[in-house]
Computed example of a mutant assay.
Amino acid sequence: MAGPEQDDDAHALFRAAVKDARPLNAPRRLHHPPARPKPVPHQFIRDERQALLDSLSDHYIPAHELENGEELLYLRNGHAPDILSKLRRGHWVVQAAIDLHGLVADEARLYVASFLADCKKRGIRCVRIVHGKGLGSRNREPILKHKVRNWLMQKDEVIAYAQARREDGGSGAVIVLLKA
Rank of each mutant, 00 (worst) to 15 (best):
K19Y: 12
D20W: 01
D20A: 09
P23M: 10
P23E: 13
N25W: 04
A26G: 01
A26W: 15
A26D: 12
P27R: 07
R28P: 05
R28G: 03
R29T: 08
L30G: 12
L30W: 12
L30E: 13
H31Q: 10
H32M: 11
H32V: 12
H32F: 11
H32R: 12
P33F: 13
P33N: 03
P34G: 00
P34K: 09
P34W: 02
P37N: 11
K38F: 08
K38E: 12
K38Q: 14
P39H: 09
V40A: 11
V40C: 06
P41F: 00
Q43I: 09
Q43M: 15
I45C: 12
D47H: 03
R49Y: 09
Q50T: 05
A51E: 12
A51W: 10
A51H: 11
L52K: 06
D54C: 06
D54L: 04
S55C: 00
L56F: 05
S57E: 03
S57V: 02
S57F: 04
H59K: 13
Y60T: 07
P62W: 11
P62F: 06
A63Q: 08
A63D: 11
A63K: 04
A63Y: 06
E65T: 05
E65V: 00
L66K: 11
E67T: 05
E67K: 14
E67A: 13
E67S: 15
E67F: 15
G69F: 05
E70I: 10
E70V: 08
E71L: 14
E71W: 14
L72A: 01
L72W: 00
L72N: 05
L73E: 11
Y74K: 05
Y74Q: 04
L75F: 00
L75G: 05
R76L: 05
R76N: 00
N77R: 12
N77T: 10
G78K: 04
G78F: 03
A80S: 13
A80L: 01
D82C: 13
D82Y: 10
I83M: 06
L84N: 11
L84S: 00
S85C: 03
S85G: 12
S85Q: 14
K86I: 06
L87Y: 06
L87A: 01
R88F: 02
R89P: 01
G90H: 07
G90A: 02
H91D: 15
W92K: 02
V93H: 14
V94I: 15
V94Y: 15
Q95R: 08
Q95A: 06
Q95D: 03
Q95M: 01
A97H: 08
D99F: 07
D99E: 00
L100I: 10
H101T: 03
G102E: 11
G102I: 15
G102F: 15
L103R: 14
V104W: 02
V104F: 03
A105D: 01
D106T: 12
D106F: 00
A108V: 08
A108W: 04
Y111M: 01
Y111T: 08
Y111G: 00
V112S: 04
